[in-house]
């Protein structure tokens, strides 16, 4: 390798280390800033108790439950619709209508989340309130409906990609045996595409957990253990966004970094799972 090549390799390597360093630094900074709380040894208490700063309780359990509830429900909303859309564009109508749908789904990924949130506040929330005649309409139901819409492009694109990776000669074999489309789907495509679909679901779940705007704008942000669809809830992300004005030396403020660490850990775990399933999908 000549001199110029070695210089470039060193420079590019330096840049990669710097970029990768960001991943480590994000975690490092949050641990550093939450160190006072960690040192006092009430990490376990923070993770398992309710939030009531007035009584000296700084637990983030309700927010963790809110995050998981919202992410789970939005996946539940989005899953069937996304599955249907992926069938539509990969199997039933691969050209024409399906291609058009695919373009629209790609476009949906470019629509800003704040716009989904904005329309949620002024269109979906009043509808939910009117329909159930209960509360303000800012509740888990409204938020998970909108969040379901926000994560559906992720699901659809992953599903359709895994469907399209099923080898064509498997599909031809079903056709030549006289199998129906439904049989092809149930006995060949779904089992073959399953690991890839799982990757998509894990990533979509991670996106739902990491989303701030929908939860912040639509879910009402009351600190409650979620118990009904019409209850208001607060997610970890919204908690971080909301409490910002607090005094830097207060415990409330340091708890933000614990919330950050929990979110970091949950999404990283998701990425680990997704990578594992993705490897299985490719092998």
């Amino acid at each position: 390798m000549d001199f110029q090549d070695r210089v470039f390799r060193t420079v590019f390597f330096g840049a990669s280390v710097l970029s990768a360093g960001v991943t480590v630094a994000v975690l490092g900074f949050m641990i550093l800033l939450s160190l006072p709380v960690l040192k006092m040894g009430f990490l376990w208490e923070v993770l398992t108790s309710p939030w009531s700063p007035g009584r000296g309780q700084f637990g983030i359990l309700p927010m963790m439950a809110g995050t998981l509830a919202l992410a789970f429900l939005s996946l539940l909303v989005s899953l069937p619709v996304s599955l249907g859309c992926a069938f539509f564009m990969e199997i039933l109508h691969p050209r024409g209508a399906g291609a058009l749908l695919k373009k629209l789904v790609h476009f949906m990924t470019a629509v800003p989340t704040v716009i989904y949130g904005f329309v949620g506040v002024f269109l979906l929330v009043p509808l939910v309130q009117e329909f159930f005649a209960y509360g303000s309409g800012m509740c888990i139901l409204s938020a998970s409906l909108m969040l379901g819409l926000v994560i559906s492009p992720t699901l659809i694109l992953f599903f359709s990609e895994s469907f399209s990776r099923v080898p064509q000669h498997y599909l031809n074999a079903v056709d030549s045996l006289g199998g129906t489309v439904f049989q092809k789907l149930r006995h060949v495509i779904l089992p073959q595409a399953w690991p890839g679909m799982l990757t998509g679901m894990v990533l979509a779940f991670g996106r739902a957990m990491g989303d701030t705007l929908i939860a912040l704008m639509i879910s009402g942000n009351a600190v409650l253990m979620p118990s009904s669809l019409l209850d208001s809830t607060r997610t970890l992300t919204a908690h971080i966004a909301l409490i910002f004005a607090a005094d830097f030396d207060s415990t409330e403020f340091k708890i933000l970094f614990i919330s950050g660490i929990v979110l970091y850990a949950m999404t990283s775990l998701g990425i680990l799972f997704a990578r594992y399933f993705h490897k299985r999908a490719l092998s």
């Binding site: 960001v22 990491g210 971080i240």
Partner: peptide, 22 residues
């Protein structure tokens, strides 16, 4: 490296904001 970049791409934007704030 690609493992670390995958983790970075999964970090919620509010956590990146919190990092910026720290």
């Amino acid at each position: 490296l690609s493992f670390l970049f995958d983790i970075l791409s999964g970090i919620p934007s509010i956590v990146v904001g919190l990092f910026g704030f720290s």
